[in-house]
């Protein structure tokens, strides 16, 4: 899975990044790379046992939810 995500990161990065680079839209390129990096880090972090942000949310809010709902 992580391989597939890495591949996807690469392909999206190349497909979107090359035109941006050619037009000199640096800011867009940086923003896009940040998002891609985040995606990859999330996947990689999960691989080494890092919790995902949604799990964090869950730990934070689930007690409240369980208190309210059945």
């Amino acid at each position: 899975m992580i391989l597939l995500i890495a591949l996807a990161t690469l392909v999206i990065g190349l497909a979107e990044g090359i035109p941006l680079g050619k037009q000199g839209q640096r800011k867009e390129l940086v923003a896009m790379s940040c998002l891609l990096g985040m995606a990859f880090l999330l996947a990689a972090g999960f691989r080494i046992g890092f919790p995902s942000p949604i799990t964090l949310l869950e730990q934070l809010f689930e007690p409240i939810g369980k208190a309210i709902f059945k």
């Binding site: 996807a8 999206i12 979107e16 800011k27 998002l35 891609l36 995606a39 999330l42 996947a43």
Partner: peptide, 30 residues
């Protein structure tokens, strides 16, 4: 939203990375 926060000229390059993050979240969190 992200494009406006960071003051980008176009938001299209962010769609696929956004989808990828979402996909990773899907796989990782659930």
């Amino acid at each position: 939203g992200i494009a406006q926060l960071t003051g980008l000229k176009s938001y299209q390059p962010l769609i696929y990375p956004g989808a990828l993050i979402s996909l990773v979240l899907c796989i990782v969190s659930f």
